[in-house]
Design a protein around this nucleic acid. Structure first.
Length: 110
DNA sequence: CCCGTGACGACAT
DNA sequence: TATGTCGCCACGG
């Protein structure tokens, strides 16, 4: 395990996501100061399996609230996990996304 | 060392 | 509003 990098930063933020809430890759990237590096956030998620404690990557969706990561979770596992936490998911899309959206730049402001 | 790929996002048309 | 294109940066081959 190398030095602390962007990945751990992402993991920290993702771990701060309360149940029943979701956030977007761009929001995290922006919060970290790397607005355009939204892809890196997702890439970090892929390696999150090596993180400890595990990262609730299922709470991270794209800007549209679409479960883009479900493809990587396999099946509807991601949707099931979200619904289990109270997040309504329909057609791989988070319902009331605007309500359940958890923006670190706002929730963690200061 | 160079190239392609990728859990995204913003802007241009 | 919808579709297309570019940018962004890390990692694998």
């Amino acid at each position: 395990m190398p030095d602390l990098n962007f990945y751990d930063m992402v993991y920290q933020v993702v771990r701060l996501i309360p149940q029943g809430r979701v956030t977007s890759y761009g929001a995290i990237a922006s919060y970290l100061g790397t607005r355009g590096s939204s892809r890196m956030v997702g890439y970090a998620m892929q390696a999150c399996g090596n993180a400890n404690p595990p990262v609730p990557a299922h709470r991270v969706v794209n800007r549209q609230g679409l479960l883009t990561a479900k493809f990587h979770f396999g099946g509807d596992l991601m949707a099931q996990l979200l619904e289990s936490e109270g997040v309504k998911v329909k057609d791989d899309q988070v319902q009331n996304f605007k309500k359940v959206f958890w923006d670190p730049a706002i929730e963690l402001e200061l």
